[in-house]
Nucleic acid binder design. Structure first.
Length: 851
RNA sequence: GGGCCCGUGGUCUAGUCGGCUAUGACGUCGCUCUUACACAGCGGAGAUCCGGAGUUCGAAUCUCCGCGGGCCCA
């Protein structure tokens, strides 16, 4: 059978993608094998699978395929986190409408339609990348089967007091017109203006004069001598004329501005703290769209910016504003639309955060890499408010609650009524007050409420099968530790009091080739489809494996992808050479065979250790190094003459090559699913992905065999180098080689050198001259400490010839020391005694080549 | 402003519970089409391991300070 010379990745990958059956990767509910459930991140169905996702999925797939081969019953589910603002925005854009122009149901229908289309596109990308996804465990959060669970989780947490409703200041995006959680606030530094105002008898400095109407107090530091007499007096707010109290609070910085600060409801988070601490009243100057309210008088209806501009002008004219200076400040922005957020007090639903519960659970989970846990701890430590889970949007899980139109009381649904949309259906029982008229809750849930039960869902929660929580693995990016990881732990504990997973595996961010975050504006954006088109999925997966250490950021690099495709070609060439020579018939091994098999078994052992520690780069590099350097560059070169000849070692080489190729194929399977399947199809029946991981044959790991093989390899390499340096063709015979060594079988060397080799014992007829004594600092330092360096220096002056390999007596700092041979190495050179030969020294062996 | 990670040949990178000649890839230079592979093989050049101080017989590796980069956050 003649294989094509070039590895046609495209044809082969497409072929296997069409051949493979989804059922190969189904999780078996009735299996006796140990389970391995992966809490795969459900991506947002934008329609395009991002390269960062692709990296993460590569990691997941390496683990899933490896664990399957190691005998686990693996579940690698695929979820889709459908709800959220980006889809709403996209739908408005596509149809040229705003959400208020159509009914809620119609708008929702359009969102579902778009999402369904996007999911279908992304499924294709996932398949093409060769991910062994269990499609029987796919979940889609916008479907009633899933969001019904989100709603039931809401009801359960309401029942156990973890969810409550309250009027509380929340972060508010005036553009999206919704509340958002702290986790969704981004910060950016901007330049703003600090305005100095005459405030009755005081002078204050503020960056937000437009909130003057919302001023509820003025604060000074209690230590500040300048203002001591004003504390607890009332002063008049300029422009609006209402009176506010002067309060003392030690968190006021006397050095900032005038040392007097106005407190508004609400300019920023600090205002909220003061507002709570001092029990201040609420003055609402902003509405939900970010426009000024009636209390802003003539400024009512203006946007904050218009109001700011106008009021500054007015105050300048009135002489209220007497000074302005520039100030750098950090502004909170909505992470989706980058609009500066406001803080509004509204009735919202909250989830109670219990920091200790999160921290304790985080400690029960293994973090890979471990330093990532600190990020969760730091975030948890900064939580000031509970998690606001209500959103004023449409495309999301409806909050299953109603308000009685008579008494206003909130009625939360019973679990058995779910799933439902309270704006579409009425509760089947009356309010506690006896009245039966209800208005459905129009607020919906934060999408993290959907995705934070993913672990529970895939583990069988609220399904008619066994609950298998905790899952074994949560793979995710470190950028969503404060959200997805945090919320998942919270919910798993709140609902079931079980940790969600045993291990969390963090992947880094993919950076563009310029070392910066990939973004369209930087023009460093690469999509997986482009890479696959140019070099195939197996090459892409190699970049993911070796691009960087697990958890660290990894720079996308075309070079690495190209190197990956070259390795595929190299492997293909190895296989193409090997195929006609393979035999599964055992035969007695030669030293070189034993050397290869020892290396191979060591590799398998190594790979298990590294894969178990999620060190994909190390694993793949070890396998690649074995295939390229040990197998291709050395073993094949050495065994070639046996394979082409008809001698007694032929069968052993064929058998060794068979074992090696077969094992190597299985080791490569998690990384190169397409390539390994192709090769496997020539060697065995069935899919390589249903095979077991290679066993380690400990009896074949043998130091002596390795040392012997290593020496043979070194000798062959030395002869090859000799030919290369002397301009002799590599296949040209030499006049003759004498080999002085402990080697008993030099047939492979002879074959590789294409020269007859005479084996000799003892010493050749040459002079061995010690030329240098080189210190062994490790031993020397341990023994002689501060004298180590002078001793090393003194070695230079010792005559190496009589020194031999015995103890050396040396005088250092007036003291005579006896240094034993473990502290130094005698370097020798060989000199010819009047013969026309060249001498090569390799370890203890000496090669004498007749010219 | 805080936290986390990082700074190693031209480029990217391994190594970091201290120890001899610092790993590999790409690039580069030279030789070679050797019955698997020129997308290759063989050989070479190329590194004050960011700077400074300290600990130590000995530091890329540990400690401190500084500079620079990235990310997450306030």
């Amino acid at each position: 059978m003649e294989l094509p010379k070039e590895y046609d990745y495209n044809a082969i990958e497409e072929k296997w993608m069409d051949t493979w059956q989804d059922s190969m990767y189904y999780f078996d509910q009735n299996s006796q094998k140990p389970g391995f459930i992966i809490d795969t991140p459900p991506p947002y169905p934008t329609g395009n699978f991002h390269i960062g996702n692709a990296l993460n999925w590569c990691y997941i797939d390496f683990v899933a395929r490896y664990k399957r081969m190691r005998g686990y019953n693996v579940m690698f589910p695929e979820g889709w986190d459908c709800h959220g603002l980006p889809t709403e925005v996209k739908v408005e854009e596509l149809h040229g409408i705003t959400k208020s122009q159509v009914s809620r149901e119609e708008f929702r229908r359009l969102c579902v339609e778009l999402t369904t289309k996007n999911i279908e596109r992304m499924r294709n990308s996932l398949r093409r990348l060769g991910f062994s996804i269990d499609w029987s465990n796919e979940y889609i959060t916008m479907e009633p089967e899933y969001f019904g669970k989100t709603q039931r989780s809401f009801v359960q947490m309401y029942a156990n007091g973890r969810i409550y409703q309250q009027n509380h200041p929340v972060n508010w995006c005036p553009r999206c017109e919704t509340a958002i959680a702290f986790a969704e606030v981004e910060y950016d530094s901007r330049e703003t203006v600090l305005n100095y105002l005459n405030f009755d008898e005081l002078k204050i400095a503020t960056t937000r004069p437009e909130l003057l109407a919302a001023c509820v107090a003025v604060a000074v530091n209690p230590e500040d001598e300048r203002y001591r007499d004003f504390v607890n007096t009332e002063i008049k707010v300029p422009v609006f004329g209402h009176k506010v109290r002067v309060i003392a609070d030690k968190s006021v910085d006397p050095a900032f501005g005038t040392g007097v600060v106005m407190i508004c409801t609400f300019g920023d988070k600090q205002d909220v703290r003061w507002w709570v601490d001092h029990g201040l009243p609420l003055r609402r100057a902003l509405d939900k769209t970010g426009k000024m309210t009636a209390i802003a008088g003539k400024y009512a209806g203006m946007s904050t910016e218009e109001c700011k501009k106008t009021i500054i002008e007015d105050m300048k004219i009135a002489g209220t504003l007497y000074r302005q200076e520039k100030l750098d400040q950090n502004v909170g922005l909505c992470w989706r639309c980058k609009t500066p957020i406001e803080i509004l007090s509204e009735r919202q639903w909250f989830v109670r955060i219990i920091s200790d519960e999160i921290l304790n659970t985080a400690n029960e989970v293994a973090w890979v890499p471990d330093y990532m846990k600190v990020r969760l701890e730091n975030w948890t430590g900064t939580m000031e408010w509970d998690w606001c889970i209500s959103r004023q949007r449409i495309f999301a899980t409806p909050i299953p609650a109603w308000y009685c139109t008579k008494c206003g009381r909130a009625k939360v649904a019973k679990e058995e009524w779910l799933p439902l949309d309270p704006t579409q259906v009425q509760p089947p029982e009356p309010c506690e007050c006896g009245f039966s008229g209800f208005k459905g809750e129009e607020d919906v849930l934060d999408t993290w409420m959907d995705s934070s039960i993913s672990a529970l869902h895939v583990c069988g929660w609220l399904s008619n099968r066994n609950l298998l929580l905790p899952a074994q693995l949560r793979p995710q990016g470190y950028d969503i530790i404060r959200t997805w990881a945090f919320y998942t732990i919270l919910r798993s504990k709140a609902l079931l009091n079980i940790k969600p997973w045993e291990t969390i595996l963090l992947n880094g961010m993919v950076l563009g080739e310029d070392g910066h975050k990939m973004s369209k504006s930087r023009n460093n954006f690469v999509v997986p489809e482009e890479v696959i088109k140019k070099h195939g999925a197996d090459a892409f997966r190699q970049w993911a494996a070796i691009g960087g250490t697990t958890g660290s950021d990894i720079i996308f690099s075309w070079k690495d992808v190209v190197a990956g495709s070259r390795f595929l070609q190299k492997l293909w060439s190895i296989f193409r050479f090997s195929l006609p020579h393979l035999s599964d018939e055992p035969a007695p091994f030669t030293p070189v065979d034993l050397w290869l098999l020892s290396k191979l078994n060591r590799l398998v052992k190594d790979a298990i250790e590294k894969m178990d520690a999620y060190q994909f780069d190390e694993t793949f590099k070890a396998i690649r190094g074995f295939a390229w350097e040990i197998l291709a560059d050395n073993y094949i070169e050495l065994a070639k003459s046996r394979l082409y000849g008809e001698g007694k070692g032929k069968k052993a080489a064929q058998y060794t090559l068979f074992i090696t190729m077969e094992t190597l194929t299985r080791l490569l399977a998690p990384f190169l699913p397409y390539f390994s399947e192709e090769v496997h199809s020539y060697l065995n029946q069935g899919s390589v992905h249903l095979q077991a991981w290679p066993e380690v044959d400990g009896s074949l790991i043998n130091e002596e065999a390795e040392a012997m093989g290593e020496q043979i390899k070194e000798i062959a390499a030395a002869i090859r180098r000799y030919k290369s340096e002397n301009g002799i063709a590599l296949n040209a015979p030499l006049n003759g080689i004498e080999l002085y060594s402990s080697i008993t079988d030099a047939s492979d060397i002879a074959g590789a050198a294409n020269t007859e080799i005479r084996l000799k014992t003892g010493t050749p007829d040459i002079e061995v001259v010690p030329v240098e004594i080189r210190p062994n600092m490790k031993n020397l330092g341990k023994t002689y400490r501060s004298k180590a360096r002078p001793i090393a220096e003194a070695f230079k002056d010792v005559d190496p010839v009589p020194a031999g390999s015995e103890n050396i007596e040396i005088e250092v700092e007036g003291e005579v020391l006896t240094i034993d041979p473990s502290c130094f190495t005698v370097i020798k050179e060989m000199h010819v005694k009047g013969k026309a030969v060249d001498i090569l020294a390799v370890g203890n062996a000496t090669i004498v080549i007749s010219r």
